[in-house]
Every structure is written in structure tokens, then in C-alpha cells.
Write a protein that binds this DNA or RNA. Structure first.
Length: 569
RNA sequence: CGGGUUGUGGCGCAGCUUGGUAGCGCACCUGCUUUGGGAGCAGGGGGUCCAGAGUUCAAAUCUCUGCAACCCGACCA
């Protein structure tokens, strides 16, 4: 390709609403343009990268036996109603009506669709199967952000495994785990797996693949010593035991005028340390007022609450709802003696005594509360959010928190969809059994952005060779016949060697060409100018190291081809 | 969905307080000179000032309503 014919609208300045490095650089480098919030056009350079990312994913999933499909992106409501997700997906799903008034949805994910196809599986002899597609998904995210990192319309590879039993699922899961690690290696995105919540999907094992980045939106709890790593939505830690002293035989109500916060009660004469307090949160879980109790110094993680209760719509109760439910205002709330609302208590409070908590009477608290004696605990659950510095549950090392981008997610679905859609096969004994499924997703555009987040400098992007839009750019210092001819010869040789080459034949100044080449991130640059040509040489520059060497004109194409080949293997 | 910010040529911004012919840099077009790190000079083109309503002799500027985008949070297979 000749740069003079290529549409690459580079910008000296990024739009000021682009903040994440990948967002700024992909805009500036002429890779993407925004249409509206969460929807981007892929320009020629961007689309080349996108396709290379998709191809790597395709190769690795094919390598574990995946079979590629193409599925409808628009679905009838009925299929989502059957699986029960028409409601549970909530507002994340784009919905529309056709001319007949029938409800339709744009695909958020494709478990349902693959399951309907899988209904034609009949025998264990056909298993295992791994099916996948790489197609556009639509999600009406409440807040699209950071360029390609969080969008509403995006290509995703999702694969689904179908097995006769749990052991088969384990194998498919492990195969995907390995395939994903190979994919991220090839994409040049450092990755690690963490334990994760399954969210609304249900299921058991769930591993998210993460890459560390300030532009991310997931917090990962990580142990530097052992291999413990978990999404904060799932993470646990060891807490030192607390000596509560002798339990009081009964609770004691005492006046606490003006004390409305945990901190205020700590400072209050006759109050209690935060670790000795109960924090009572009034939440509305699927319209049911529920009391959630955690230790005074702990934070509730709402995803944990959702996982523990299966609730879909979770929000804090408003002041009116709280007053109506408990007869008191925030600051004086408690769960002691409450029986007409469900009470969910964090595991960290098991066995605790001599606790202090609000008395549901403004300006009053209880002391001497024994959690298991005085609260009507409907459910115990791990609800609190782990904080940096707490002890690793495996080895006791202080945990750290890393901001990360989720670049892939694999989890076990079990038989949920098989049960709903009748995906059953005959087992060797002739018995009809549901097929066991796994689900494995990887966002193409997000990984493209993640690759940039992991590979850039102050001049621009530094694409890994594997996904660079062009592997090498031949920068012509002049556009006279001699330079042009030398450039075309090298270009032809590179093409013949299977290298993606771009010939910068634009009538532009050297500085512009160098700056654009660096901004766009081509891994290798061959510079042809009078200086080198005089000696029959080209200059060869490696983007990542800025290292420049002189190479004989006759050798340069072969040299670059070797490097490209080496980088991709 | 809550909080904050912002909408002015393709991009970055000024102008708005105090209403009076829409400006700057980059980019773009033409010519000349230049030519190894985002050239110089001269000339030129391009804007419903987010939209609608209102106030006014007069609105980019003041008022109201709406829309959109971004950031923080909530949310997020």
C-alpha cells in the first residue's frame, strides 16, 4: 500500500475528551473515529489491526477444536424469555419492535442462540463440541467510556463448549484457559487470570483474564507472594480475630445525641471502635427492603450481595423507605429485633459479641449486642469488600489492589441452558442427559485497545508485530525517481516475502513522515534518503528501541522479513 | 441513574463577565522558495456558534427548555 493513497487522518492534537492513552492514540493515529457514545468507526488502519486480533483469536480457538459459526445478531424476545434473561438482563439489552409489533433484541451474548442449535445434538458420541463465533454484540452500557475499552457495539469472540459430563467441561475449560494465555501472549498484552464473580450468569468456576492498567475499571486483589488473585467482587482475605471480651447478658440502650456516623460513635464517650460496631445498610433487593449488616469499618460489595442473594435490581433504600421500614434515620439504624425484613449478615460477624449498633430510635444506640443472639439472621454471606493490606487467605502476605482491564472471561455454565432449551443427548447407557456447557468470551476491540495501553510511548503506539496494521513502513525522504525506484524495489521484495509493508511516498517533509510513522506505531521503519542511497544503504529503525542501523539495499528486505517472521513465531 | 464539566470551521482553543459585522493556531487549496525530525513567505476556501423557544432595535454572548459528549460514582455476560 502507498501511504499517499491510504486514508490515515492523523492528528497533532487529540480531542480533549479523549483521556485514556489508547483512546487518544487510536484517534490521533487515524485508527478510529467516534460516531456517538460507545460506537466507533474502524478506519482502514484500525480495521487491519482489528482483523489481525480476530485472526489470532480464531487460530487459537481453532487449535483447540473450535468450529466457527455465524449467527443472527437480532433475536426474538421469546428466546430470551425462555431462558429467563429477558428480565434479568435488564436495561443492558437493546430492544426494538418489528413492524408487526413483535419484541426483538440485539444480541448481548449468544448462549441462547447456540443452545437452540445444540438442541440437535443427540448422542454422547458427538461430544465434545466447541462452537464459537466472532460477531458484533450490543450492550446498552450505562456509561460507555475510554474509547474502545467500553463500548456499546463491539466484536466479541464467544465460544461455548458442550460436554457429556463435568470432567469433559473441566477439560474444555482448561483448554480455553491455555488458549487464552496463548492469545494474550501473541497480542502482546500481559495477562493473568483471577477468580471472578459470574454475575447474572450463574455457574461455577469463573476466571477473568486481566491486564494491569490505570485505564481499566476492575479492581483486582492480588498477592505478590503466592498465586492468589481475585476480582474485588469475589476476593476474600484473612482477618485477625478480635477479642470481644465477656458477652453482656443483654443489650443496653444508651443515648447518643447527634452521633450519626461510625467515626462519631468511635469518638463518643461510651461509644465503640469501628471494629466493634455493626453497620446496618438498608437495601432494596428486587423491591424487597433488606437489612445488610457488616462490621463498622467494612464496606459492602454490591456484587457479592447480588451473588449471595440472586437479586438483580439492587439499590440503597431512600430516606423515606428507611424511615418507614425501621422508624429511624440513617445514623441510628440497626437490625436488633428486626423480624419483618430479611437480615443478611457478613460472615466476618459470626460469633461476635459486645457489638454496638443503632437502636432504630434517632439518637439512641445499643451496646452489648451479640450478633447471633440478638439479630434474626436470615442469611450469612461473604459481603464485605477486601481492602489493600489485609492478609492473603492462602499465605497471609498483605494483599495489594491493582486497577485492571478485563480482557477475557471464561466460566462454567453447567446445564442451565441445556435444561431450558432441551439440549440433551443419550449417554452410553442410553439414558437422556443434559449437555454440560461452558462459556468463553474475549472482546476484540477491547484487546486492541489493551494492546495499545501496554505498548506506547510519548511518540505514539508501538504495535507488536503480530497485530501491527503494517509491519514495516518504507519512508522515502525524497520522491525523486531514484528514491522512488529503490523504495518500490524493497517494497516488492517485502511483499514477495509475505511482509505487510507500507510505502510512504507522500510529498511531505521528513519530520512529518517520521512523526506519523511513530504515532501509527509501525514496528519497523526503512528510511531511504540521499544520505544512505549514496552508499547503497537503507536505514533500518526499530520502533520500540529507536535503534537505527544501516543495511545494504540488497539485504534490507530479507533482513526485515526475517525479523517479522521471528517476531510472529 | 446521581454528581461535575463541556458544546464556536476537520482538530485544539479564544470570544460570553459588560449583547453591536465570528477570531487565532494547526490542518486544507494555489504559487514561489525550501527539503534528514511536525518549513517560510504571499494569496485563498471553509462555520446552521448543539437545537428550539424567549428577552431585545440587535443574541455565540442574557433567560428557559431540550439534546449530545466527556469525567467521577453507581452499574456492567
Amino acid at each position: 500500500m502507498r501511504w499517499s493513497k491510504l486514508f490515515v487522518p492523523t492528528l497533532r492534537d487529540a480531542p480533549n475528551d479523549a483521556v485514556a492513552p489508547s483512546h487518544r492514540l487510536l484517534i490521533r493515529g487515524g485508527f478510529i473515529r467516534q460516531l456517538h457514545a460507545g460506537h466507533y468507526s474502524m478506519l482502514p488502519l484500525g480495521w487491519r489491526v482489528h482483523q489481525k486480533v480476530a485472526q489470532i483469536v480464531r487460530e487459537e480457538i481453532d487449535a483447540i477444536g473450535g468450529q466457527e459459526f455465524s449467527l443472527p445478531t437480532m433475536h426474538p424476545a421469546s428466546i430470551w424469555q425462555e431462558s429467563g434473561r429477558w428480565d434479568t438482563m435488564g436495561e443492558i439489552m437493546f430492544t426494538l419492535k418489528d413492524r408487526k409489533g413483535a419484541d426483538l433484541a440485539l444480541g448481548v451474548t449468544h448462549e441462547e442462540i447456540f443452545a437452540t442449535v445444540a438442541a440437535e445434538l443427540t448422542s454422547y458420541k458427538q461430544l465434545p463440541q466447541v462452537w464459537y463465533h466472532i460477531q458484533t454484540k450490543f450492550r446498552d452500557e450505562a456509561r460507555p467510556k475510554s474509547g474502545l475499552l467500553r463500548v456499546r457495539e463491539f466484536a466479541m469472540k464467544d465460544s461455548y463448549s458442550f460436554d457429556i459430563d463435568a470432567a469433559g467441561l473441566d477439560a474444555a475449560f482448561a483448554a480455553h484457559d491455555q488458549a487464552y494465555r496463548r492469545i494474550f501472549d501473541r497480542l502482546g498484552v500481559p495477562s493473568f487470570g483471577v477468580q471472578a464473580s459470574n454475575g447474572a450468569m450463574g455457574g461455577t468456576d469463573s476466571i477473568e483474564f486481566m491486564t494491569k492498567s490505570d485505564a481499566g475499571e476492575d479492581d483486582v486483589i492480588i498477592c505478590r507472594k503466592c498465586d492468589y488473585a481475585a476480582n474485588i467482587e469475589k476476593a476474600i482475605s484473612s482477618l485477625p480475630t478480635i477479642d470481644d471480651g465477656e458477652a453482656l447478658t443483654e443489650t443496653e440502650k444508651f443515648a447518643t445525641p447527634g452521633v450519626l456516623t461510625i467515626a462519631a460513635l468511635e469518638a463518643f464517650e461510651g461509644g465503640a471502635a469501628a471494629t466493634q460496631q455493626l453497620k446496618t445498610l438498608v437495601m432494596v433487593l428486587d423491591k424487597v427492603i433488606t437489612l445488610v449488616v457488616v462490621r463498622g469499618d467494612h464496606q459492602l460489595n454490591t456484587q457479592k450481595l447480588a451473588d449471595a442473594t440472586g437479586a438483580i435490581d439492587i439499590r440503597p433504600a431512600g430516606p423515606d423507605e428507611t424511615m418507614k421500614a425501621l422508624g429511624a434515620s440513617p445514623g441510628s439504624l440497626g437490625a436488633v429485633g428486626v423480624t419483618d425484613h430479611p437480615v443478611i449478615v457478613d460472615e466476618a460477624l459470626r460469633g461476635r459479641v459486645n457489638m454496638t449498633t443503632g437502636a432504630n430510635d434517632d439518637g439512641w444506640h445499643f451496646r452489648g449486642v451479640s450478633v447471633e443472639r440478638d439479630l434474626t439472621v436470615g442469611q450469612w454471606a461473604d459481603l464485605r469488600e477486601v481492602e489493600a493490606g489485609e492478609a492473603c487467605p492462602n499465605c497471609g502476605t498483605p494483599l495489594e489492589v491493582d486497577r485492571c482491564i478485563e480482557i477475557g472471561h471464561i466460566f462454567k455454565l453447567g446445564t442451565k441452558f441445556a435444561d431450558v432449551f432441551g439440549v440433551t443427548v443419550a449417554d452410553p447407557d442410553g439414558k437422556v442427559v443434559p449437555v454440560v456447557m461452558g462459556s468463553y468470551g474475549i472482546g476484540i476491540g477491547r484487546n486492541m485497545a489493551a494492546a495499545v495501553e501496554a505498548n506506547y510511548d510519548d511518540k505514539g503506539i508501538i504495535w507488536p508485530v503480530s497485530i501491527a496494521p503494517y509491519e514495516v513502513v518504507i519512508t522515502l525522504m525524497r520522491t525523486d525517481e531514484e528514491t522512488m525506484t529503490a523504495g518500490e524495489t524493497i517494497y516488492d521484495d517485502l511483499k514477495a516475502a509475505g511482509v505487510d509493508a507500507l510505502l510512504d511516498d507522500r510529498d511531505a517533509r521528513a519530520g512529518v513522515k517520521f512523526a506519523d510513522a511513530e504515532l501509527c506505531g509501525f514496528p519497523f521503519r526503512i528510511t531511504l534518503g540521499p544520505r544512505g542511497l549514496k552508499n547503497g544503504e537503507a536505514e533500518f529503525t526499530i520502533r520500540s528501541t529507536e535503534e537505527t542501523t544501516n543495511v545494504a539495499l540488497g539485504d534490507i528486505a530479507g533482513h526485515v522479513a526475517d525479523l517479522v517472521r521471528a517476531a510472529k513465531s
